[in-house]
Design a protein around this nucleic acid. Structure first.
Lengths: 154, 154
DNA sequence: CTTGGTGCAAACATTTTGCAGCACA
DNA sequence: TGTGCTGCAAAATGTTTGCACCAAG
């Protein structure tokens, strides 16, 4: 049940203040605007269960009564990648436009079941240190990582 | 300088015996055939520098004088994924059909430079144990993993 | 021989782009 | 008010599929 049937204003969107701030800052930094459409898309993305399809997102937005074109959604998803809010995800079987929210969570790694394709976000605390050390030894700075573990029944 | 201008026979393809055996076994197991085209594609893939584009591969094959259609290449790449010989790879900026050879190497993880996009294969010995432990605790068996580290200059 | 494989071109699905009008800063 | 933004539909990818003929086992 969409609590906000009529398109919410820029500020009345749900509890996503920090992401929102990050997004606005990134946009402003690039001389871009924080539009109503972008706010709606951000809101919808943050309400996704971690992993989502571009297609689902678009359908979801339409179902909620927003009239955004897929062109705008794709354009915005790209901006959100640049802002470090979301990340694309690739599965072996299916290439489709899958994404995951990575902002504000340390559970960005994925455990994918090889038997049923189910994917869940997991957390591996020690991984960061390993990556850090590896970058350090090459004189680089760690910017992020992405891990997929494939597992099935014994 | 292609040492083999004329299409090589099924057996005279370069030094890729173990992969070849694996591929043939997988195919046979599925009631599929080990054709000349598949042999040529396998050979070409194994001569790639770890990471490659589907497109490059196709162009490379044509340049060497092989007349394989992209349809067959894509069909074969999929079979090679199933055989555990190659794996798809996704980069943020570009979705294109990138793959990497994973057979016979423990350096399947990637360090990607955020400044120039350069990707190199790396090895993280302790990662397997971590993944193993994680699967173990869920009663699953580790089948494999995939890691991308993003790093840039300090 | 029989079953699967191949090339081709058309079909597909997803993402990008050009353009005319609209809206935020 | 002027850039940038939007929707639309068309274009551009990247990948898959139907079909008639060919070839591996």
């Amino acid at each position: 049940m969409p609590a906000s049937k009529s398109a919410p204003g820029l500020e009345s969107l749900s509890v996503i203040e920090p992401v929102c701030a990050v997004f606005r800052r990134t946009l402003k930094g690039a001389g871009l605007k924080y539009t109503l459409e972008r706010a709606q898309i951000l809101d919808s993305v943050m309400r996704q269960p971690g992993l989502f399809h571009a297609d689902e997102l678009i359908r979801g937005l339409k179902d909620e009564g927003f009239r955004v074109s897929k062109a705008t959604v794709y354009r915005t998803l790209k901006l959100m990648q640049d802002s470090g809010i979301i990340q694309r995800v690739l599965f072996d079987d299916d290439d489709a436009g899958r994404y995951q929210v990575v902002f504000g969570t340390s559970a960005v790694d994925l455990l994918i079941r090889t038997d049923n394709g189910e994917a869940m976000q997991i957390e591996i605390p020690e991984l960061k240190a390993i990556c850090d050390r590896l970058c350090e030894s090459r004189g680089l700075e760690l910017k992020g990582h992405r891990l997929q573990i494939f597992a099935g029944p014994k």
